[in-house]
């Protein structure tokens, strides 16, 4: 059971990352590319939090119920990293979408094949 859970959670995280990369590399639509970035982000966050999990552990918060009982706690370091990554990911998405709107205003399309004059 444990081995199955290991493979399924890590496998899903890897699958989401690769699916996002596939969208970024293969899709022609600019908004679809940004969606791919967001999906790849989600897979990465799942992977990080899954690495920090410990069997039977509680959340790393010393509430009065668990204080002094010696309960095992999950690793707080990946959680702090993912917290940062989610907020930064939102900023990246916002700027990327603003660039999409700007390109649409200039070229009247969101297809990267039709935007030909990507030169200085």
């Amino acid at each position: 059971m444990q081995a199955f859970l290991t493979y399924s959670i890590y496998g899903t995280a890897l699958f989401l990352m690769l699916l996002g990369l596939y969208a970024v590399l293969m899709k022609k639509n600019l908004i679809k590319i940004v969606i791919g970035l967001s999906v790849a982000d989600s897979g990465l966050h799942l992977l990080f939090v899954a690495v920090g999990y410990i069997n039977g552990g509680t959340a790393p918060i010393f509430s009065p119920a668990v204080a002094g009982t010696g309960t095992v706690m999950t690793d707080p370091v990946p959680q702090a990293l993912v917290l940062t990554a989610i907020v930064i990911g939102f900023g990246v998405t916002a700027v990327a979408l603003a660039l999409v709107v700007r390109l649409y205003r200039k070229h009247n399309t969101t297809n990267i094949d039709e935007i030909k004059n990507l030169k200085w």
């Binding site: 940004v34 966050h45 989610i86 939102f90 979408l97």
Partner: peptide, 27 residues
């Protein structure tokens, strides 16, 4: 479920609501 309530709250506020709305405004 993986005992990370801080991250769950962030993902709920930013991923579900705010990211979706900026995508929809762009579309």
């Amino acid at each position: 479920l993986l005992q990370a309530p801080d991250v769950a709250l962030t993902e709920a506020a930013i991923g579900i609501a705010l990211s979706t709305i900026i995508f929809i405004i762009t579309i």
